[in-house]
Simulated scan of single mutants.
Amino acid sequence: MKLSIDTKLRGKVFVGVGIVSNVINNDYPSELLATINNTIEDVRAKYSLDKLKDDPIIRFYRDFYWHELGIDPTKQRPAQEALLRRILRGEDLPRINPVVDIGNAASIKYLVPIGLYDIDSFSGKDLIIRYARDGETFNPIGSPKRTLSNNQIILSTIDGLILHVYPYRDSEITKIRTETKNVLIITAGVPGIDDERLLDSVQFIIDLTTRYLGGVIHARPVVVRDEGNLSL
């Protein structure tokens, strides 16, 4: 599988990527729940609601929303910030399924948006991050289909199936389900974010899925800024 970034977007977006295969995603080992809970407690000890907006990592994503996407980040918060605010208000992470919950834990730990995709749902086709074309349709998780405009950034297969509106909304078609076996991990970078943070967030997900869910590493973490082949 190859992942490319359209030349118009190189320098504006980049991603950390990895693949885990053969996961067992229909049960929660107690050790996994304990690890996720420890992550929650760690971020509660590290961050506070009133100072979160001043964190430099949060600022980089807010600036990207304002300047590249034309979205007011105080009205539509970056996905990882919204999750972290939920935790800092005393709520728990939503319980979806083990792989998604690991991704959410990584998101609040490293303050980056995490995308997780069922590889079999798009047949492992080559992918590209590009601007949408006016009129393309996208089926977001939990919402009606929507029509996109050409200022929106998307992750799609080479034949046009949209997995993600960058960097905040995933597709119903390619989402992780309990029967998912093969998982593509993408952590979304924006200017100001260092490669190590993206690599560490991917590695965190790989470590937990291989340790607790029986997964096997298929592609180790890499950062893609132009194009890359995803394999061992």
Rank of each mutant, 00 (worst) to 15 (best):
L111H: 00
L33C: 12
Y47D: 08
E41H: 06
I71C: 14
D72H: 10
Y28A: 11
E136G: 03
T7Y: 12
T74Y: 15
T174W: 08
D200K: 15
Q152W: 01
Y166A: 03
L84E: 08
Y110Q: 02
I96V: 15
T157D: 11
K109E: 07
V216Y: 06
K53L: 13
S143N: 13
S123L: 15
I206D: 02
V112K: 00
I141T: 14
K125M: 12
F138Y: 11
E179F: 14
L83S: 10
D27N: 12
P144C: 06
T174K: 06
I87G: 05
L88G: 04
Q203I: 00
E41R: 10
P191C: 06
L83N: 14
P94I: 10
T147F: 01
T157Q: 03
P29T: 07
P140T: 11
N182I: 01
S21L: 09
I96K: 10
D55L: 09
D54Q: 13
L69Y: 12
L83Q: 14
G103E: 07
R77Y: 09
K125W: 04
I217C: 01
D159G: 01
G214A: 12
E179L: 13
I206N: 08
G135P: 13
G142A: 12
A219R: 00
Y47F: 15
I19R: 07
G135V: 14
N151K: 14
V222R: 09
N97H: 03
G189A: 03
I71L: 14
N38P: 02
S231Q: 03
N229E: 12
L198V: 04
D226I: 15
Y166H: 05
V165K: 02
L161R: 04
D54S: 14
H218N: 11
V183L: 07
L93A: 08
T137S: 12
F122E: 03
Q203G: 03
I19P: 02
V183A: 02
I114R: 01
S149V: 07
G135L: 15
D134Q: 15
R89G: 09
D101H: 12
I205H: 02
L84R: 05
R77D: 04
I176D: 07
R89F: 13
I185Y: 01
P221G: 04
V43W: 04
I186E: 00
K109W: 00
H164A: 06
I19H: 05
I206K: 04
N104D: 10
N150W: 00
R59C: 08
W66A: 15
A45Y: 05
L208R: 05
V17D: 00
I205T: 04
A82T: 01
S231A: 12
G70H: 09
L213T: 07
G214Y: 05
R146A: 03
L33Q: 15
T157E: 07
R44P: 06
I185E: 02
P140H: 09
P113I: 00
N229Y: 11
G192E: 08
L163D: 09
S121Q: 08
